[in-house]
C-alpha cells in the first residue's frame, strides 16, 4: 500500500505573517492569500526539506515539536486541505 507523497513550493514562494494563532500566507505563484491554523503552516515548512509522505512529515515535525494527537491520519487530512487551497500537491 502506497501512501501519498506531498510536495509544496519552496518557502521563498510564500510570505507568511503570524497573526496570533493563525498564519496568513501569501502564495506568490497564485497570488492567493490563505489563513492557516496549526499544524498546516508547520506542514508546509516541513515540506521545504523535500517531498514527503505523512509518516516522514510526522517525523520531521517530531524533530521540532512535541506532537500531540493522532499523527498520520490527521496529517493526511491537513495536506488534503492544503492541496485544495493550491499550496501543496501530490506527486
Amino acid at each position: 500500500m502506497t501512501s501519498p507523497v506531498y510536495a509544496a513550493d519552496p518557502p521563498a514562494a510564500r510570505v507568511a505573517v503570524a497573526l496570533d494563532a493563525l498564519v496568513a500566507v501569501y502564495h506568490r505563484p497564485s497570488g492567493a492569500t490563505h489563513l492557516l491554523a496549526a499544524p498546516s503552516p508547520e506542514l508546509l515548512d516541513a515540506l521545504a526539506a523535500g517531498p514527503a509522505d505523512a509518516v516522514t512529515l510526522r517525523d520531521r515535525l517530531a524533530a521540532l515539536y512535541d506532537l500531540e494527537g493522532d499523527g498520520t491520519a490527521m496529517i493526511d487530512a491537513r495536506m488534503e486541505e492544503l492541496i485544495v487551497a493550491g499550496l501543496a500537491w501530490r506527486i
Partner: peptide, 29 residues
C-alpha cells in the same frame, strides 16, 4: 492537553489531532 486551540504553543507543542475543523481558509482574489 492545555492547548485547546490546537495552535503551536510557546512550549513547542504541536497539536495534530485537536483541529477537527478545517485549518485552511483561502481569501479569494
Amino acid at each position: 492537553a492545555a492547548n485547546p486551540l490546537g495552535v503551536a504553543g510557546r512550549r513547542g507543542v504541536l497539536m495534530l489531532g485537536a483541529v477537527a475543523a478545517t485549518s485552511v481558509v483561502t481569501i479569494r482574489p
